[in-house]
């Protein structure tokens, strides 16, 4: 395989890994807990910006870009700090965005927050270099390893894969735990859960912080590979793309989210590269977005549970007399 193809393949793999973590973050919030995080892309970019400036070194002012918080931290720290920052930001946004009683109200507030954040970054050029964004972000260990571009790419793909596995372990353990069950109950009927003595807002907040941290981590991985991040990378439409991926793949199912990341963010997006271009610049992209909009309407109409539906969970193991009650043991999930 020629080097160019290898590089293309490993780029796809790394993007797939990043998108998978992003979709798990969204899936645990929206699919499992029912929190509609319409500010998703803001959390991803917080991670990206932070991982960027924490590796770029102090901003000198003489360079072509200016930013805050510049530092040169060794490898895992930028990712960890980015994830922490995503969690803290989620906590802060959650303080007011999770206050309205209805999930769709909350989603509207988060949408407003996301757009405002992008306005702020655009207008406050001294934060993250405004419109142009930050660039020339160093890759972890690149200077020490002394590898060729493709070989280093494989190393980074391996690094991404290890992170994806770690995140899967975390997400799987959490969704399979009693807390995961509580989240599904919250999604199905928050009022009933509240009446059982569970504070729905606290649970939503935990979920929001966890998802925010994972989204930031995905941004940090992405930015250290592509090396640049600007407001153009996180238009609000991107949040829509991730929602399409989770809904098409399967809401509430971790493998569904993975499949959605592969199909919608991988195959669908990539296939447009091979279509002949037509019309003026931008028409092809507009048509692509119309198709995505159509895709989500088709799925919500014909297969709202997605390609891999949520696993039906049986309660029989928890019930005292399985033999007598086997008729009644029913599934929790819809």
């Amino acid at each position: 395989m020629s080097l160019a193809y290898q590089y293309y393949l490993l780029t796809l793999l790394i993007f797939f890994g990043v998108n998978t973590i992003a979709c798990w973050s969204l899936n645990i919030q929206y699919g499992v807990g029912g929190v509609m995080n319409f500010a998703f892309i803001m959390f991803q970019s917080v991670g990206a910006y932070l991982a960027g400036v924490l590796t770029l070194g102090p901003s000198t002012g003489a360079s072509f870009q200016q930013y805050i918080l510049g530092a040169t931290l060794p490898f895992p720290l930028p990712w960890i700090l980015a994830a922490l920052a995503g969690g803290v930001l989620a906590w802060f946004v959650g303080l007011f965005a999770l206050r309205p009683g209805r999930r769709d109200f909350q989603a509207m507030v988060m949408l407003v927050v996301s757009i405002i954040a992008s306005t702020l970054v655009l207008t406050q050029g001294s934060w993250f270099n405004g419109q142009n964004g930050i660039a020339a972000i160093p890759k972890p260990f690149e200077s020490k390893l002394n590898l060729g571009e493709v070989q280093y790419g494989w190393f980074y793909a391996a690094l991404t894969a290890v992170t994806v596995l770690a995140v899967y372990w975390l997400v799987h353990r959490l969704t399979a735990s009693p807390w995961g069950r509580r989240l599904r109950a919250m999604r199905e009927n928050p009022d009933a859960l509240q009446s059982l003595g569970v504070n729905v807002r606290t649970e939503s907040m935990k979920l929001y912080v966890l998802g925010g941290a994972l989204a930031s981590l995905s941004g940090a991985i992405l930015v250290q590979f592509i090396g640049a991040w600007s407001p153009g990378s996180w238009a609000t439409g991107e949040t829509f793309l991730y929602f399409v991926a989770v809904i098409v793949g399967g809401v509430g199912n971790n493998f569904g989210a993975l499949l959605g990341a592969a199909l919608v963010l991988g195959v669908f997006e990539e296939s447009l590269r091979y279509l002949p271009s037509f019309g003026y610049a931008g028409v092809a992209e507009a048509v692509q977005f119309m198709l995505l909009g159509g895709l989500i309407l088709v799925f919500l109409w014909f297969r709202p549970q997605g390609l891999i539906p949520e696993r039906r969970r049986r309660l029989s193991r928890l019930q005292p007399e399985p033999a007598e009650r086997s008729q009644e043991s029913s599934a929790v999930a819809p």
């Binding site: 929206y30 029912g34 509609m36 209805r102 999930r103 769709d104 989603a107 439409g237 829509f240 929602f243 809904i247 019309g279 931008g282 028409v283 507009a286 048509v287 977005f289 119309m290 995505l292 909009g293 159509g294 989500i296 309407l297 919500l300 709202p304």
Partner: peptide, 22 residues
């Protein structure tokens, strides 16, 4: 569900805006 209705309206918004653009 009402969650999904928000997505329906968002999908409509995306279709409408991009149709106008196209």
């Amino acid at each position: 569900s009402r969650f999904a209705m928000v997505m329906v309206s968002l999908a409509l918004a995306v279709i409408l805006q991009n149709a106008i653009q196209a």
